[in-house]
C-alpha cells in the first residue's frame, strides 16, 4: 500500500495487501520427510501454499499469516513453526 491523502485507493486486487506481516510463527517447510501429498496446500486458509516444479510445496510468505494449520495437519510432521524475529 501507499501513503495517499485520506488513505484512498484505486480499484484493484487484495493481493496488494501483504498479510504476511501479521505472522508471529513462520512455517518452515523442511522437505525431509515430505511425501508431496499436498494436504498442506489443501488446508491452507490463505491459499498461499504453491506446488513447485519438483512437486514440493512452498508457502508464499508475503501472504502466509502463520496460522499453523499446515504444520498441524502435515502427516509426515515435516513442517515446523518457528518464532519469527522481525
Amino acid at each position: 500500500m501507499a501513503l495517499s491523502v485520506g488513505c484512498t485507493a484505486k480499484p484493484g486486487k487484495s493481493r496488494g495487501n501483504r498479510t504476511g506481516a501479521w505472522r508471529v510463527f513462520k512455517p518452515a517447510f523442511k522437505h525431509n520427510k515430505c511425501t508431496k501429498c499436498g494436504l498442506c496446500a489443501m488446508v491452507c486458509p490463505e491459499g498461499c501454499i504453491i506446488e513447485q516444479e519438483d512437486e514440493f510445496m512452498i508457502p508464499d510468505y508475503d501472504y502466509c499469516k502463520g496460522c499453523g494449520l499446515c504444520a498441524e495437519e502435515c502427516p509426515a510432521e515435516d513442517i515446523e513453526m518457528v518464532k519469527e524475529e522481525k
Partner: peptide, 17 residues
Amino acid sequence: DPISFGMFAFPEYYMEF
C-alpha cells in the same frame, strides 16, 4: 475514474496516516 476513501491500513502504515 473510481476511487475509494479511507481504505484499510496495516499496522505498518496506520500510524503514518
